[in-house]
Design a protein around this nucleic acid. Structure first.
Lengths: 227, 227
DNA sequence: CATAAGTACGGTACTGAGTTTCGTACGTTT
DNA sequence: AAACGTACGAAACTCAGTACCGTACTTATG
């Protein structure tokens, strides 16, 4: 039988970093400590990670690339499906290795430098969504503003669901809540889409006494935007 | 007559920092350079600003405090007025000294470290709005999610207007655009407010043939949310 | 098989941000 | 006049991040 496949240096470094951050805290851990525990030199650390913070955010670039390709592959289906899929991809990335996500969450929550970095990387996701929505809306009036709003809302919805799941210790399946939250966003922005005139008609609407205003709104929206 | 009132050391440091950043770039400017131009020692720089980046973001804390007090002072008026006022406060803070804002914008745009810091501070504003909206919505269903979405949208609307104004070199008055953008946000979220049942009634709506779907929507919303 | 080329790592030295500590000058209080 | 607090300068230190060089180990190429 083959011996235990020796893990890559990157993995050893990441594990050493997380372990030391857990034991001694982020600030009290030097890059030398991480390299020493991983059994390599300080130079090697900086060849694999460009900064001390990078050791704990290893895969943001790869995820960004996956989001980008998913969004760009939205020729056939509708844009909303592409957005929903892309957001689900992000959440799945966290849920798939929950232990790592949870440990990182605890760390990020209490180290300001890591929190700021997390926020900055979230902004990069938001930028991807904004560009996609912007291209989708074309040059309709207020396209830039609407793209900005929609991207911010999509990302905020995802973060709300993710943070709740993290705070609960990853105890449940968050995809239902994500769909609910995204449904909120989509319903919110649906009536901002510029509907095209398609022959004029008189609309007369009647509703039962027990219909909630929100149900009324949704019914009306469905009618108004069915072309 | 009194001699020219000598500026405070903080001001001298900030001006020296901006000037040197403009001349030689951010990375090529050391804290020693800044302190030397301001005529003080390196120690004094770090007594006035906790980091090199701080020299260019001097007043975020003060503005945050003003936003907070404005939001908390919303007992009499409605929450939407408070939010609008608070956002206007932020925009005014940039517009009031346009030269500083423009110079900082050019710098922040091309220095990654500064961009990340800007994003992180924006997140602190968003947190204020989120907490306010959360308290406002109380424990209605999905209050947390709706607060997150609304705060993100409000901040995104402000940033969209501000960035457009900065890109244009501060050539116009952006408050009209801000009101328009905030109107978008408010209209977007109005039909998410949980309307309370106030006696049931039958609604019958008729509209002229020429009414645009959006006009129809707005009229319906006005009726649904008039209590 | 031998040599050249490419790659991955270790070691050293350096820059610069940020912290800590100590000394000192100046103004204020009692 | 003595005690005190405050603000600054100076120096030493830690550590992240970069640049450079030397060396082993592998892989193509003659």
């Amino acid at each position: 039988m083959a011996p235990v496949p020796k893990p890559s240096i990157s993995h050893r470094l990441a594990e050493a970093a997380v372990a030391l951050f857990d034991e001694n805290g982020y600030d009290a851990t030097t890059v030398d400590d991480i390299a020493a525990r991983a059994g390599v030199s300080r130079s090697t650390f900086f060849r694999h990670y460009h900064s001390k913070e990078d050791a704990i955010f290893p895969d943001h670039d790869a995820l960004l690339a996956r989001i980008d390709t998913r969004l760009r592959a939205s020729a056939a289906d509708t844009a909303i499906v592409a957005i929903t899929d892309a957001v689900r991809l992000v959440l799945a990335h966290y849920v798939d290795d929950a232990e790592v996500s949870l440990r990182r969450y605890r760390l990020v929550r209490e180290v300001p430098a890591l929190r700021d970095r997390e926020i900055a990387s979230v902004a990069r996701y938001q930028r991807l969504f904004r560009e996609f929505v912007g291209e989708w809306l074309g040059d309709s009036p207020d396209a830039g503003l609407r793209a900005e709003l929609m991207a911010a809302s999509v990302v905020a919805a995802h973060n709300q669901v993710l943070r709740g799941w993290l705070r609960a210790g990853g105890a449940y399946d968050p995809f239902g809540l994500l769909d609910h939250a995204l449904g909120y966003v989509i319903a919110t922005f649906r009536h901002l889409e510029q509907p095209q005139e398609k022959g004029e008609q008189v609309v007369v609407a009647t509703f039962s006494r027990s219909a909630s205003p929100r149900a009324v709104m949704e019914a009306i929206q469905a009618h108004l935007e069915a072309r």
